[in-house]
Simulated scan of single mutants.
Amino acid sequence: PAIAVNRWNKFFFDALQSKDQRLLLLGISLFLALALTSSMTSVALLQMRMRFQLRWREWLTRTLVRRWMERRRFYQLSVLRLVDNPEARIAEDGRIAIELFVDFATGVTNALLMAASFVSVLWFIGGSLTLWGVTVPGYLVIAVVFYSACTSYGMLLLGGPLVSRVEAKAVAEADFRFELSHTRENAETIALIGGDDAERERLCTRFDQVALRWVAVIGRQARMLFLSSGNNVLAPVIPLMLGAPKYLAGDISLGDLMQAAAAFIQVQLALNWLADNSMRLADWFASARRVAALDLFFDNLDKLAIGAEAKMIDLAFSDDGALHLCGLS
């Protein structure tokens, strides 16, 4: 549909330039048909993507729950407390890891297809440009690649530490949720010993850590937004400026100019897709690592249990009928 809409731009603006009312009406009819086709295609792709996410998450959840419940690992984790909030890792982090990964896979595939398709449009429509006796073939393609490389490099410099900052924030959020759950589970004990003030102070300290890590993320996002906002203003104008000399010289029509401008924007968006989605990429990376760490800890827990079998408590009847605790630690 995107390629068809791009070709429609040429048809419509050429009809507008020639002031042909019949072609304008035909263009409007074609656009309505394209809108309907695009809507149907989008709905079909949405159904496929979300159903695939659901099936994959169902498999992952069942696998993690089975491993959590096997060999009473859920009880061992509650005693050892070496992994924070396993239920949130299974439910929330598992969902984010699956959903964002599928979104990234489809997004990257779509970006590659869009870039390949619209680069050919730019190459053939833009043609070559002669400056000071030097002919530059496919100058619009060179321009969009150079422009996208500059913006992507700028986003990399400004948002490079974002992944680690988002991961640290996710860990702090999970720790805070764990402490809240711990307080709820031990509400009776806290109330009996009068530990309300101490517990409140401990929870506030945990949230202070969340706030500090949020501030670090906000700072990085602000820098990236500064660059992306400027890019949103410049990107639609640059192809018009580059194509204006050829249009004024009569080498291309108004439709060609608008089609090339639309193709330029599509290629630029495709090439900058990863940079534009860096925040979501950081969220996925953090959640995926937490799920992987939980799965790895299940294996390590089994190894610890196997190594401790020789030190298990042995229950037996005493000869004198009394209770004896021998070598118990």
Rank of each mutant, 00 (worst) to 15 (best):
P1K: 13
V5A: 10
F13L: 15
F13T: 12
L16D: 14
Q17S: 10
Q17F: 00
Q21N: 11
Q21D: 13
L24C: 00
L26G: 03
G27Y: 08
G27R: 09
G27E: 14
I28Y: 00
L30V: 11
L34R: 08
L36R: 07
S39P: 02
T41D: 11
T41W: 03
T41G: 10
S42H: 14
L45R: 10
L45P: 03
Q47L: 12
E58W: 08
L60N: 02
R62N: 14
R62A: 15
L64P: 07
R66W: 09
W68Q: 10
M69E: 15
Y75V: 09
R81I: 07
P86W: 00
E87D: 10
I90S: 07
A91T: 09
E92P: 01
I96N: 02
I96H: 08
E99G: 05
V102A: 04
F104Y: 09
A105T: 03
T106P: 04
V108S: 01
L112S: 03
L112P: 07
L113R: 04
V119E: 14
L122W: 03
I125N: 13
G127C: 06
W132V: 12
G133C: 04
V134T: 14
V136N: 12
L140Y: 00
A143H: 06
V145I: 14
F146D: 04
S148R: 02
A149W: 00
Y153C: 12
L157N: 07
V163R: 11
E167M: 11
A170D: 05
A170N: 11
D175W: 05
S181M: 15
R184N: 06
A187W: 15
E188A: 14
E188R: 13
A191G: 12
D197Y: 15
R200I: 05
R202H: 15
R202I: 09
V210F: 12
A211H: 12
L212T: 08
R213Q: 09
R213V: 04
W214E: 11
V217W: 10
G219T: 02
R220N: 12
L225A: 15
A235D: 09
A235P: 06
P236L: 01
P239M: 01
Y247C: 08
A249V: 03
A249Y: 10
S253G: 13
L254Y: 06
Q259I: 01
F264T: 08
L269I: 10
A270E: 06
L271D: 07
L271M: 09
N272Y: 04
L274Y: 04
L281N: 07
A282D: 07
D283G: 14
A286T: 01
A293R: 08
D299Q: 09
N300T: 03
L301I: 00
L304R: 08
A310H: 12
M312F: 00
L315E: 01
L323Q: 06
C326I: 05
G327L: 11
S329E: 06
S329C: 05
